[in-house]
């Protein structure tokens, strides 16, 4: 089984600790992970903002870079949804315009092998107890792409519930969008911030020390608000919790705050 990590551009730029956590976690579970260096970005920002054609080179790049791997695992639900839902659409619309340019083949190759991290753990590896230890109170925000497009369902929560020392607290209004929405956050900043505020108020009401998610783009927005308000809550990617063990417990990366 040849497995590649698709880190995603947001993690590559801002959250290397999430990528390291995925590698540590998968290797601990006996999976050999490769990181093809030619990978960059899925093209979601271009596509969702109305620049479909600008996403096309990135569709082809994705297929080329991950050619030869059986599985591509990524710690970002929205990037998986981009590949799974929108790569075929990009190819179909190019076909409607009388073009192919390798897009149909690229989409067909990319879709079946691309997995969101929790899908890969639960569905492919068949594990929910990954042997993690994380002695903190945690509340989980199921980002929209994971919740509605990918239908991750209970997978993330089952993984969290099996973590020793972890106390999972229900997040009120969990299914509601956090207000990030890519360029929505800057095109409609007031509505975005209002939605984010409701999300963090709900998270703070749980009394948890950690707001966990499986998509760092949503967490970047929420963590930015939490830090601005100096709130006693830290946003943290699920992979970093699952990577944490008693022998090698979670340590905050230098760019993020401590768990209070």
């Amino acid at each position: 089984m040849r497995v590649a990590l698709f880190l995603t551009c947001v993690n590559d730029m801002l959250y290397p600790q999430t990528g390291r956590a995925v590698v540590r976690l998968l290797e601990r579970l006996g999976v050999e992970v490769d990181f093809p260096a030619g990978q960059t970005c899925c093209g979601q920002a271009q596509y969702n903002t109305g620049y479909r054609r600008q996403a096309e080179p990135l569709v082809r790049r994705y297929a080329e870079v991950f050619d030869g791997y059986d599985h591509v695992v990524t710690p970002s639900g929205s990037c998986v949804a981009m590949v799974r839902d929108n790569y075929p659409r990009i190819a179909a619309r190019a076909a409607d315009e009388g073009r192919d340019e390798g897009l149909a083949g690229a989409a067909a190759a990319a879709v079946p092998k691309t997995y969101e991290l929790t899908e890969f753990l639960v569905d492919v590896l068949g594990v929910t107890d990954v042997g993690a230890y994380f002695p903190h109170t945690v509340t989980y925000h199921p980002s929209c792409h994971g919740l509605r497009m990918l239908g991750l369902g209970e997978r993330p929560r089952r993984l969290l519930q099996a973590v020793r020392g972890l106390e999972l607290r229900e997040l009120p209004g969990a299914e509601e969008c956090c207000g990030f929405g890519g360029t929505f956050a800057v095109k409609n900043p007031d509505v975005s911030a209002a939605m984010g505020q409701d999300k963090i108020d709900n998270a703070l009401s749980t009394g948890a020390g950690v707001l966990c998610g499986a998509d760092n783009s949503c967490l970047m927005h929420l963590d930015g608000m939490l830090r601005r308000q100096d709130a006693p809550l830290k946003a943290l990617h699920l992979a970093e919790i699952l990577a944490s063990t008693e022998e090698r417990p979670y340590m905050a990366a230098e760019t993020t705050g401590k768990i209070r």
Binding site: L14, Y15, S192, A193, G196, Q197, G224, R227, E254, T255
Partner: peptide, 10 residues
């Protein structure tokens, strides 16, 4: 306006 910018890792 409402959020701190993310910090780049070293």
């Amino acid at each position: 306006n409402a959020r701190d910018l993310p910090r780049f890792p070293g």
